[in-house]
Design a protein around this nucleic acid. Structure first.
Lengths: 232, 232
DNA sequence: ACAAAAGTGTTAACACTACACCCATGG
DNA sequence: CCATGGGTGTAGTGTTAACACTTTTGT
């Protein structure tokens, strides 16, 4: 393994699927993601995932965080590497290897995110016709989110530091797109032991004030790596 | 997103964690993987995962398959992308981004694999002191194998086309490193419906000849992608 | 006939689901 | 005091784990 001499033409990019829960049609919340309009060829004027080239001294996860900040002005509450796409023909302008990250941002922060002519939040399930192979990437990110939310406590990353049981349930319902039994959901969450009651209650609600909870651990993912997969 | 101008110094490599079940200490079988001795700096004379630079017109998974063939002379029965490692300081000779693949090879083929002065099969759990961050990569690959074998039918890729229930159970026991109840294991596997009896029996055994089974589907992984993650 | 492995049956423990019901608060 | 969501109890159902047991072969 010496230094390579012949494949310098491979460019390394990072794209990020940034997921947040935003109000949808009728009071419900849906999974959304920000898209950016391409201002150059190829795929000019098409919508695409935020991303950019990896800087020489920048880790891959830092590059993911940077593209997120440049697009939405926000910090992710969760970031994990999703997959690396590298088909030789996936970009018409040359060989591009794209490391894709998946990020979750808190709802109340996402509401303040920048939006403009070239940045638009889109319901994740409706994101089609994107540039490159980004349709495929979004579908994969959604599949990962929906399978992982059932066994890992990543839904917490959509919420503030304290939250009610109903708010956590609403996150699961929005992600899984189906109603959940409040009683069973409570017991299921309490059994995992990932959240702990703060002792306080949420006032200002229309009815009985619910207890507030806090995430017990910073809510990492399973496996040998700490929070969001191996350091990149 | 124009062509990058400033980060051509990122080199793209592929490494492969090649897993097979080989005879261990006392009649049991253990998960093994081939290592190659580095013949150059950095980490000269240290053991490392097989790998190499990605060719310009070669997909990432093809590069993984190629490094596997160059090392062991074998074809994998299963190949999936594991993770992409890209810390800026992970190689002392410059920035290297390594896409790691995980491969499974059938036991009876692995027995015929090349071994020599610079290629050695090693019990996967004993593989430490490797070059670069390869210790970490091997541990991650083993964790993925052990968690995935419980819900996906990847153990079939260690076996031949037809196999007995006991052989399949031995694979699970070797991977999970604990004995499994034959009766419950049988029911569990039959419930998933991933294998089907051939109608034949395995003769030449010391006692009652067991039924032979065959994998029903080519045993893909779940998710939106076909066999081994998205095409690369 | 015996040993050993293949394969079946039984049961208790556990987890999950649906839904009935009580509690607490704002209006 | 009523409507509404917060929160608890419980019975029915499905799944899992442990292990006793029967079957079938080679020696």
């Amino acid at each position: 393994m010496s230094q390579p001499a012949d494949q310098r033409e491979i460019s390394v990019a990072v794209s990020t699927v940034i997921l947040a829960l935003l109000p949808g049609a009728c009071g419900t919340r849906r999974v959304h993601l920000p898209l950016v309009r391409r201002t150059r060829q190829p795929f000019q004027d098409r919508w695409a995932l935020p991303g950019g080239w990896v800087c020489p001294d920048e880790s891959l996860s830092d590059a993911g965080r940077r593209t997120l900040a440049e697009t939405t002005g926000l910090r992710p509450s969760y970031l994990e590497q999703l997959y690396t796409f590298g088909r030789p023909d996936r970009s018409p302008t040359g060989r591009v290897l794209t490391v894709v990250y998946s990020a979750l941002v808190r709802s109340h922060e996402a509401a303040a995110a920048t939006e403009g002519e070239n940045v638009r939040w889109c319901a994740a399930d409706d994101a089609t016709g994107l540039a490159f192979d980004h349709d495929e990437i979004v579908r994969y990110a959604l599949w990962r989110l929906r399978t992982k939310v059932e066994y890992a406590s990543i839904a917490l990353h959509f919420l503030d530091e304290t939250f009610s049981m109903a708010q956590l349930r609403e996150v699961h319902e929005a992600v899984l797109q189906r109603p959940l039994d409040p009683a069973n959901f409570r017991r299921h969450v309490e059994a995992t032991g990932t959240i702990v009651p703060t002792g306080e209650r949420l006032t200002g609600t229309r009815h009985r004030p619910p207890r507030l909870y806090r995430a017990l651990v910073p809510a990492g993912s399973p496996g040998p790596f700490a929070v969001a997969g191996p350091p990149s």
